[in-house]
Amino acid sequence: MRNLSLSTLGPLAALILLIVLGASLNDNFLSAANITNVLARSAFIGMIAVGMTFVITSGGLDLSVGSMAAFVAGMVILAMNALQPQLGVGLPLALIGIGTALAVGLLAGLANGLLVTRVGIEPFIVTLGTMGIFRSLVTWLADGGTLSLDFAMREYIGPIYYGGIFGISWPIITFALVVVIGEIAMRHTRFGRYAEAIGSNDKVARYSAVRVERIRLMTYVFLGLLVGLATILYVPRLGSASGSTGLLWELEAIAAVIIGGTALKGGFGRVWGTVVGVLILSLIGNILNLANLVSPYLNGAIQGVIIVLAVVLQRKKTSAEGR
């Protein structure tokens, strides 16, 4: 497989290099605790990035996911706090929270998708707008401060983030499931194939009887649902939401997608590559924290260099492929 060798192996090699580097710098790097920590922290961005892979593959973009996550978290907390007097602390209230997260995520994705497909506005503009709207709404709901989940309920749902089975925490398990589903959807279903076709040339797709607008809409809704899912796992961690929740997540998710070898202009989607991209970004932060080589404040700078480097390397490869 030509594609596998060229676009996927590069990021994978970089990931392995980072792991070797991390292991040689700090003995704790390969400890179960650290690995679990890195994976669990990657899970939120990771799930969103899987959804982002489909949006970008079909030629779209979603800048609103970070704000959307904050807004969903805010709504979840408000809903659970409001219903706690009637329902009490327990499973029904937790299910209300989960339902709220998925519903708000779905509706937010639907709003983005409809503005792009029905109204016909550039995805960049639409999601730049909704990015501001979602973040402003959550700040307003929190009255400029923080929305906090009632303490008893926070205790109750804590295991969603901190618990797990066989020593693997729920966020990691959920992330793994999302990745497998995403990979299968991209490689082995019509949805994935159509997304690639639309991103490659939407006119050709339209002339091939592909329902272009519907597929595009579905990518935004899918992403919205995944933002909801990520928020379900995120809320128990801190039990609060504010105007700064999920700040810059959109850029991290997009960066992970690009590092993973998905083309920003669309047409080629790599779910596995996105996972590798997410892990690379998390590991850089983790290694900087563990080793005393470089200030952790330079995390962003190093991530930036990696993003640019990844794209430069991919471009070299594609031009080499061309001839």
Partner: peptide, 21 residues
């Protein structure tokens, strides 16, 4: 080139695009 075929995709993906069902 603009409406018929996806130039950066393989033969297989192009052939079956309109009849994928």
């Amino acid at each position: 080139k603009e409406r018929g075929l996806l130039l950066d995709k393989s033969l297989r993906e192009n052939l079956t695009l309109s009849t994928l069902k």
